[in-house]
């Protein structure tokens, strides 16, 4: 197994950093998924997107300012997800970029975050050729659903454990990234089933390559950035976090 991992690792390393200089690894590109998996991942993702739409629609009726708020925060998270983060292992020779779903899940809740991720993925697929239209369902599953829910629950559990706000944000950012890559690895690993390969072996290899190249460090970096962001907003404008339901009471001092 090791003899196969090493060449794959070497080549991935070369292609991600030397060829493109910018690593975009969490989206499955157009044309990779076979027809049946395209249908399967769309079928899995549509109910979550539907619930997200229902949530926004219901809140919009009660509070008309909710739509511009979600749109604007969604745009901000999209821009955040385009931040170039240098890969420390290569001394900044190449950059990667964060997912942003952990932060959107903390700010907007998991279902609305799935909807925001869906729209972000659609924009990226159409206007950046990053991801794809047939792979949209698969990408929604890994980045939208797994990323949002894991980030949201990580944040809530950390809050329950009374961890400082920075660590709550750190865990949300980091875990949502790890789950996003895990989701992508599972989706790609499932492709070998028909060719007689082992799903677990393939998924583990792909996940290993993700984590060993830029993405393992990126998970930690995104966690740190999300932690900084939440602390920064809490110190400057705690009312925003209170309004979004991230903190329960903005008048009580809180450990950051």
């Amino acid at each position: 197994m090791l003899s196969r991992i090493i060449p794959v690792f070497t080549l991935s390393f070369f292609l991600f950093f030397a060829a493109a200089n910018t690593a975009y690894a969490m989206h499955i590109t157009e044309g990779i998924l076979p027809f049946r998996w395209v249908i399967t991942w769309f079928a899995v993702s549509v109910p979550f997107v539907g619930i997200g739409v229902y949530h926004v629609k219901r809140k919009k009726k009660k509070m008309p300012s909710y739509l511009p708020l979600v749109g604007m925060l969604g745009a901000a998270v999209f821009v955040f997800s385009c931040f170039p983060i240098p890969v420390i292992a290569l001394n900044g020779m190449a950059t990667s970029h964060p997912c942003g779903t952990g932060m959107s899940a903390v700010l907007l809740g998991p279902f609305v975050s799935v909807l925001v991720a869906t729209i972000a993925l659609l924009i990226q697929a159409l206007f950046l050729a990053h991801g794809g239209l047939t792979t949209l369902g698969g990408n929604i599953f890994s980045m939208g659903i797994l990323g949002s829910f894991s980030g949201y629950f990580a944040f809530k559990i950390a809050q329950r454990c009374k961890l400082p706000l920075f660590w709550c944000g750190f865990l949300a950012g980091m875990i949502s990234d790890v789950f996003t890559y895990l989701g992508t690895s599972i989706e790609l690993g499932l492709l070998v089933i028909n060719t007689g390969g082992s799903f677990f072996k393939a998924a583990a290899e792909i996940f290993g390559v993700f984590m060993m190249t830029s993405q393992g460090i990126l998970c930690i970096v995104e966690g740190v950035v999300v932690g900084f962001v939440l602390v920064f907003i809490y110190k400057r404008r705690p009312g925003i976090l209170f309004h979004l339901g991230v903190v329960k009471d903005d008048t009580k001092p809180m450990q950051t």
Partner: peptide, 27 residues
């Protein structure tokens, strides 16, 4: 590298704050 991470955090925090203010004005 460390400074850059912290700067990114501050930048993104400002981005969220500005987005929130702009959302109110847009509404």
């Amino acid at each position: 590298w460390g400074k850059m991470i912290k700067s990114s955090g501050v930048l993104c925090g400002l981005l969220i704050m500005r987005a929130f203010d702009r959302a109110e004005r847009t509404y």
